[in-house]
Amino acid sequence: MEKITTHTGTALPLRRSNVDTDQIIPAVYLKRVTRTGFEDGLFAAWRKDPDFVINKPEYAGASVLVAGPDFGTGSSREHAVWALMDYGFKVVVSSRFADIFRGNSGKAGLLAAQVEPDVVERLWALVEADPTTQVTVDLQAREVRAGDLVAPFQIDDYTRWRLLEGLDDIGITLSHEEDITAYEARRPTWKPATL
């Protein structure tokens, strides 16, 4: 996984709450067996509308998505994270993320920065007034900066550390394999098995 310390780029203002994973990528786009190429499904239904914000030329190349509360609700599909990353987003800023989406982001290397609702409003205002506004998301300092806005964001310590170091979760866990083996040895024998 790529390390993330600080990201700076232009931002896409998505003025919607409850952006569920079926909107981020509809189920019909989930049929690939590879891990890349999901950008075509991103916001597939909404993108058909030429007025949808992602289609506006002034927001082309945006790498920070700023969305309303309850972003990523619904299905566990990690494809939602992959679609955002494949499209070019490095960071999603919202005032509330669904748990599974937040977890998937941390695993795949998309930074989910949780801010206060007024910060979302101010970011929207800034990038709508000037789409070239540079938004910096500083993971080291846990800070979002844009124009005269400087605001903290929340991310749990462990995910932050993993993203800063670009660490692979499985590798970390397997370094504790003796603990897993010890646990397996003390599990009750009546627990079910599939084989």
Binding site: S76, G103, N104, K107, Y158, I180
Partner: peptide, 21 residues
């Protein structure tokens, strides 16, 4: 019982565990 993403599916396949807060 809870739903997980594909990276976590791989993690469980490889280790039969999951790091969870």
């Amino acid at each position: 019982a809870f739903g997980i993403g594909t990276s976590e599916v791989e993690h469980v396949l490889a280790t039969q565990t999951l790091p969870q807060a």
